[in-house]
Design a protein around this nucleic acid. Structure first.
Length: 438
RNA sequence: GUGGAUAUAGCACAGUUGGUUAGCGCGCCAGUUUGUGGCACUGGAGGUCAUGGGUUCGAAUCCCAUUUUCCACCCCA
């Protein structure tokens, strides 16, 4: 009989248990920090009506979305968690308490060519705050504060949260009378870290911006210094457009507030080249990089969007959010050996009943341990003791509880420490057993 | 969508100008040890050499096509 070759689609990450344990550890750490800041869990459907997901989309997003039909219905797999959130708050406006803070950590799907660090199915770990009518500027500082706490907790080394404000860029481009090319310009300057100043200049010239303005743009986004110095320089530029002034003002507030959130100053930095490709951002924008691994690019990004729900409702529901691409982050850090899998099992004690032993006794021992919240497994398969112990060894299980005829008759358990090889017979009493495995 | 590579055992690979029965390592199974793992030794299973066609006395090796996967661009997490 011809066998079907077992395989998974390219761009879909699938892990061995030891890697999955590591992945889940990261996932749990992120979730805990999100919850610590008051974000509520949300789980929207993986599949939505195409018209809902595509309400706003266009261009690249639309090309990359997985769509299909079931009967008469046009369906699509979600390609991010932000659009479903916009749908959710628009739909459930009456039942939600605002400001609505939610987190969602789930898989999203994008039908693009997979490559290094680029998946077609991947986890996004999002937090967003949605306000009714307005959303206080304090949240623009809370977002990076949460990021700071997450990456401190994950402990991958020094990182920098780069902060900018779209209003500053938009105001500046308006001042140069380039308003009709804003999204192209943003996309190009956003790549400056990757492609360099000269290529950015070339590309800007290519979209018909005159040399004079190209130089002004490059000069503007190159403004550098301490956060305070950058703010001062921005204020000294004689642009009177309200949007620009408002952007500078917001950015200044965010920087001031961040200190109040207890974020160490060296972990955040104003960077005027941060533009973000997505065009729905309207205010603060963020990108986070690991200082030691700049090649990974942004490991967490987001920003403020004021109009994302306009396709679903007349209610004004401004929001702000950030997203960690966990699948990419995990795969890249694993490849760079920044993180490595240590545990192959979550079992603390493996109970090994010998042949001829009444299984009831083994089950009783396991139950006692489980009642004390100790992860316990029993090896049921009929094999010799050597193989059973080998199983524990291969999975890195710390303790085995050997139960043979001797133990059963004397109501004892042989507890063996697999790390140092020592073993000792103790009476079948949970307190005695716990003493041995602590 | 554009460009460049790749394909040999479960995994990672070697395989000479084309030459008998395609190899090594890891992993897997068993034994040396029937109540004790890691180490060592011994043995074993596992391959239509991606697929199809061509050249040749003879193809994993050369040619063509298809497929696959990877890398880069675009875009993005």
């Amino acid at each position: 009989m011809n066998k079907v070759k077992p395989r998974v689609l390219p761009g879909f990450m699938e892990l061995l248990p030891q890697d999955q344990i590591l992945f889940n550890t990261m996932y749990d750490k992120i979730r805990k920090v999100y919850e610590k800041f008051g974000f509520l869990p949300l789980d929207t459907p993986t599949i939505e009506y195409s018209e809902v997901l595509l309400a706003k989309a266009g261009g690249e997003t639309e090309k990359q979305i997985y769509s299909f039909n079931k009967g008469e219905t046009d369906l699509s797999l979600r390609f991010d968690l932000t659009v479903p959130l916009a749908r959710y708050v628009s739909q459930r406006y009456a039942d939600i308490t605002f400001p609505f803070k939610r987190y969602q950590m789930s898989k999203v799907f994008r039908g693009e060519r997979p490559q290094k660090g680029r998946f077609r199915e991947f986890y996004q770990c999002d937090i967003d705050v949605i306000g009714a009518d307005n959303l206080d500027l304090i949240y623009d500082a809370e977002m990076p504060a949460v990021i700071y706490n997450v990456f401190k907790e994950l402990n991958f080394g020094k990182f920098t949260i780069k902060i900018n404000n779209r209003k500053i860029l938009n105001g500046f481009f308006k001042y140069l009378e380039l308003s009709n090319k804003v999204s192209d310009i943003l996309r190009i300057i956003d790549k400056i870290d990757k492609i360099g100043k000269d290529t950015v200049k070339e590309e800007l010239l290519k979209i018909d911006i005159n040399v004079d303005n190209v130089d002004k743009i490059l000069e503007f986004i190159a403004i550098d210094g301490s956060n305070e110095e950058i703010i001062t320089k921005l204020k000294n530029i004689p642009i009177k457009a309200e949007m620009y002034l408002q952007g500078v003002d917001e950015l200044e507030q965010v920087i001031l507030n961040l200190a109040e959130f207890g974020v160490e100053a060296k972990y955040y930095k104003i960077d005027l080249t941060i533009a973000r490709g997505l065009d729905y951002y309207t205010g603060s924008v963020y990108e986070t990089v690991l200082d030691e691994l700049p090649k990974l690019g942004s490991i967490c990004s987001g920003g403020r969007y004021d109009n994302l729900t306009e396709y679903y409702t007349n209610q004004k529901l401004p929001g702000i959010g950030i997203s960690i691409g966990l699948t990419r982050l995990f795969s890249q850090l694993k490849e760079q050996n920044i993180i490595s899998s240590e545990k192959k099992s979550l079992t603390k004690v493996l109970v090994l009943p010998m042949e001829n032993v009444n299984i009831k006794y083994a089950l009783k021992v396991a139950s006692m341990l489980r009642q004390k919240q100790i992860n316990t497994d029993i090896y049921y398969t009929s094999k010799n003791l050597k193989q059973k112990i080998k199983y524990a060894d291969k999975l890195g299980i710390e303790y085995v509880a050997i139960i043979g005829e001797e133990e059963e008759n004397s109501k004892t358990v042989m507890i063996k420490n697999m790390i140092n090889g020592k073993q000792e017979k103790v009476s079948c009493d949970i307190a005695e057993i716990i003493k041995k495995i602590k």
